[in-house]
Every structure is written in structure tokens, then in C-alpha cells.
Computed example of a mutant assay.
Amino acid sequence: MIFYICTKNMYLWYIKYTTIQKDTTILLYSNNQLKMGNEKHTTEECNGRVSSVKDALYVLSGKWKLPLLIALMNGPERFKDIQRSLDGITPKMLSKELRELELNALVERKVFNTVPVSITYELTPYTETVMPIIKALGDWGKQHREKLVEERRTEAVDTN
């Protein structure tokens, strides 16, 4: 069974085979219209959005993809330089992530005919389309961290 839900005025989520919590409002209308706020959506539009989000998450998912894109923002870098800037990434993982980003047209690998051969990696112009997402995630992450710190401070004051 598929549900389309809106939890506490957040975004529409697609849930399959899951338990619906008590504070969840199910927004399934008989005429195939879903309503969130003042907007109405058909189930086809919602399915399309879910598919688009899944595609984006597929491209950007993982521990290293976003930090890797951020590391390349300053310009072309060699493999070892990238590895040094991303503390903790193994060469095997870095190679895999670079290959996947290259397949998705976000990173370009350039081979220079020198002795020894030089290889650099750089962002493609298409990567500019991802930058607002990275900025928004960074802003939200900062806001979320501050919220959690404030809540913990408030809890600590309340218990004393």
C-alpha cells in the first residue's frame, strides 16, 4: 500500500510498507488529488517528484560526494591533493567516488601527456546546478546544529 503524507507541515513524503504515526495526516483524496498547504497535487505529480528526488539522492548520496565537490571548488586538483584535503578517505573510495561523479557529468578527468602522466580532476560547468543545493544543505545543517545545541542547553538549565 502506498501513502502520501504530510507530517507537521513538512514536505510530502512517499512511504511504502511503513507504520503511520499518530501525528501524521494522510492526504489521500478520492479524486486523485493531494493537498499540501494551498497546493493541490495529483498522484502522478507526486510520484514524479519522488522519482526526481530519488534520482538526485542517487547522484549525491554517500559520505564523500558532497565534500569531494566542495574540495574541487577551488579549481583542478590532482588525486593525492584531493585525498589529503578529504581526511579519512581511502584511495579506493576516492577513485570510486570520482568515477561516479564523472559518470554523472559533475567532475571531469583530464589526462596530460607529460612524463610522468599528470591527471587532474575538476568540476564541470554542469556542477553549478548543484551548488544551490549544497549551499542550502550547509545552511540547514548549521541551523539544525544550533537548534540541537540550544535545546540541550535548555534541557541542562531545566534539570538544574
Results as ranks from 00 to 15, higher is better:
59 V>D: 07
59 V>S: 13
60 L>M: 05
60 L>S: 05
60 L>F: 03
62 G>Y: 09
62 G>T: 00
64 W>M: 06
65 K>L: 00
66 L>K: 11
67 P>W: 10
67 P>L: 00
68 L>R: 14
68 L>I: 11
68 L>W: 12
69 L>D: 06
71 A>Q: 14
71 A>N: 13
73 M>Q: 10
74 N>M: 00
74 N>V: 03
75 G>R: 12
75 G>K: 13
75 G>P: 10
75 G>M: 08
75 G>I: 07
76 P>M: 01
76 P>I: 02
78 R>W: 06
78 R>H: 05
78 R>Y: 04
80 K>H: 09
80 K>P: 03
80 K>W: 00
80 K>R: 08
80 K>Y: 08
81 D>K: 10
82 I>Q: 00
82 I>H: 01
83 Q>R: 04
85 S>D: 11
86 L>P: 07
86 L>V: 06
87 D>I: 10
87 D>C: 14
88 G>W: 04
88 G>I: 00
88 G>R: 02
90 T>Y: 01
91 P>I: 10
91 P>W: 14
91 P>H: 11
91 P>F: 13
93 M>E: 15
95 S>P: 08
95 S>T: 07
96 K>H: 14
96 K>N: 14
99 R>C: 14
99 R>M: 14
100 E>G: 02
100 E>F: 07
101 L>N: 03
101 L>F: 09
101 L>P: 02
101 L>D: 01
102 E>T: 15
103 L>V: 12
103 L>S: 13
104 N>M: 05
104 N>L: 05
105 A>F: 13
105 A>I: 14
106 L>C: 03
106 L>T: 02
106 L>I: 01
106 L>R: 08
108 E>C: 15
108 E>A: 15
109 R>D: 04
109 R>H: 07
110 K>S: 03
110 K>G: 00
110 K>I: 09
111 V>I: 10
111 V>D: 11
112 F>R: 04
112 F>V: 08
112 F>C: 01
112 F>M: 03
113 N>C: 01
114 T>Q: 03
116 P>L: 04
118 S>T: 01
118 S>Y: 11
119 I>P: 00
119 I>L: 02
120 T>A: 07
120 T>E: 04
121 Y>E: 09
122 E>R: 15
124 T>H: 09
124 T>R: 04
125 P>K: 09
127 T>S: 01
127 T>Y: 09
127 T>V: 06
128 E>P: 11
129 T>P: 09
130 V>R: 07
132 P>H: 03
132 P>M: 01
133 I>F: 05
135 K>G: 06
136 A>M: 13
136 A>K: 13
136 A>Y: 12
137 L>V: 06
138 G>E: 07
138 G>M: 00
138 G>Y: 01
139 D>V: 06
139 D>C: 01
139 D>W: 06
139 D>E: 07
140 W>D: 13
141 G>R: 10
142 K>Q: 15
143 Q>R: 15
